[in-house]
Design a protein around this nucleic acid. Structure first.
Length: 416
DNA sequence: TCTGGGGTCCTAGGACCC
DNA sequence: TCTGGGGTCCTAGGACCC
């Protein structure tokens, strides 16, 4: 048996941990740049605010209903997520952290009353972290996902215990709600008169394989109660790392694009060093605002294979700027840029270039020192000069809450 | 004024190897 | 008449997830 633990309205719940006055009030959290609604309290859902809706389109309702609005505060959410996961690890040692707010637990071989066990875990996580969770329990991960959805509608716990129960659940689950079935596959399935998870299990294996590949086949097997998607217990190192952002304000200025792109490249370098990897390929893209049909549109990306695999910020910036130089055209209003690095390999396996003059050892030591300083004193305390201040292009984050748990200057203040 | 960011996996097809 | 067999690696594109 598997349990899927999912934090309820996670980002909103994080904001509420330090703002209990927001309980029972409508609260939403926005995407980067204060663009779209990405987390909603139950009260906000009841008002009709939709997931991924641009908030400016609902400004009137937000104002009238007194909705509390927050910019996303990933420092806070990441830290609270870690606390939840550590707590879960304490009660169920075999755990896969599936996303910032979800974890699969392996319950096989545990001789326990699942209902009581789940109630206990809900209580513990709530007591230790202040985050409400829902738990779905079932014989496969795909079914645990379905159980979790049912749990969210009820009292937070739902168990699929036997085949009869499983059969009943899949008959009542719309196919587009099944884990692994997205928009495109839903369309395909509707065309073939497949509407429920149960309908799906009647499909012919050959047809499934030809249309939805092995993933489609796995979904069927899992829906039938046979587990074939195992828990991933080892966190694999990333195969690609990206830092991409829309700007707070659109810009024509190449200087500002250079600042942004070098900052993103630096961010990629940090992430790369954190997992002790090197990159072989770097891509830079820039584009205009696709929503503004009055502006002339431009959309371009370019990649380059690095001569030697690296995780050195200065070097990543150098190539990123060269790529930017290649694709930049004057005259457009740019809204977004990004740096993506791929072809990642473990630092341990590094192969030097026989003829290279650059003293990499020196740069590596520098990186360690710079990362240490920035870690201690705050991001970008030490940076490459061309990164600039970011004043003119950085994210809009007008409703940012404090980083209560990770910054001494932002801890909760209680006046007595 | 105003619309997010960061990932993974699978497959087909082409280039290439012996 | 008629020209092998068995592979790997890489990339682009399409799907999915949160």
């Amino acid at each position: 048996m598997f349990a899927l633990v999912d934090c309820n309205n996670f980002y909103v719940s994080c904001e509420r941990v330090f703002r209990p006055d927001l309980n029972n009030k409508p609260v939403v959290v926005l995407s980067n740049n204060d663009g779209c609604i990405i987390s909603r309290s139950e009260e906000a859902k009841a008002l009709g605010l939709k997931m991924a809706e641009p908030v400016f389109q609902r400004f009137e309702l937000v104002k009238k209903a007194g909705v509390f609005v927050f910019s996303s505060n990933y420092t806070l959410y990441g830290d609270l997520s870690q606390r939840v996961m550590e707590t879960l690890r304490g009660v169920a040692p075999v755990i896969e952290i599936y996303s910032i707010d979800e974890a699969f637990l392996d319950l096989s071989g545990l001789d326990i009353d699942f209902q009581k066990w789940a109630e206990e875990i809900k209580k513990i996580v709530w007591r230790i972290t202040g985050i409400p969770i829902s738990i779905g329990i079932a014989p496969t991960k795909t079914l645990a996902k379905i159980a979790n959805k049912a749990a969210k509608k009820g009292n937070g716990i739902f168990i699929i215990r036997n085949d009869r129960h499983r059969d009943c659940m899949i008959r009542n689950t719309a196919i587009e709600k099944v884990w692994g079935v997205g928009r495109q596959y839903s369309k395909l399935l509707f065309r073939n008169r497949i509407f429920s998870a149960y309908d799906y299990t009647l499909l012919d294996d050959n047809w499934l394989r030809s249309q939805m590949k092995v993933m489609g086949l796995r979904i069927k097997t899992e829906l039938l109660g046979e587990s074939c998607i195992p828990l991933e217990l080892i966190i694999p190192s990333k195969k690609a790392i990206a830092t991409t952002r829309a700007f707070g304000r659109k810009t024509k200025s190449k200087r500002l694009l250079k600042e942004a792109v070098s900052t993103y490249a630096a961010r990629c370098g940090e992430k790369l060093r954190k997992q002790s990897s090197l990159a072989n390929l770097i891509t830079v893209f820039i584009h205009t605002d696709p929503f503004n049909q009055n502006d002339l549109q431009y959309n371009k990306s370019k990649s380059i294979t690095l001569p030697v695999a690296t995780n050195c910020t200065q070097e990543l910036i150098k190539y990123a700027l060269k790529l930017l130089d290649d694709i930049f055209l004057p005259g457009y209003f740019y809204k977004k840029a990004g740096v993506i690095i791929e072809g990642l390999e473990p630092q341990m396996l590094w192969q030097p270039d026989l003829f290279e003059a650059l003293n990499r050892e020196k740069y590596n030591r520098l990186s360690v020192v710079v990362d240490g300083l920035n870690n201690y004193f705050g991001r970008d305390t030490v940076k490459v000069a061309i990164q600039g201040s970011g004043e003119e292009w950085k994210l809009r984050q007008e409703k940012l809450s404090n980083r209560f748990t990770t910054n001494w200057n932002e801890t909760l203040v209680v006046k007595v």
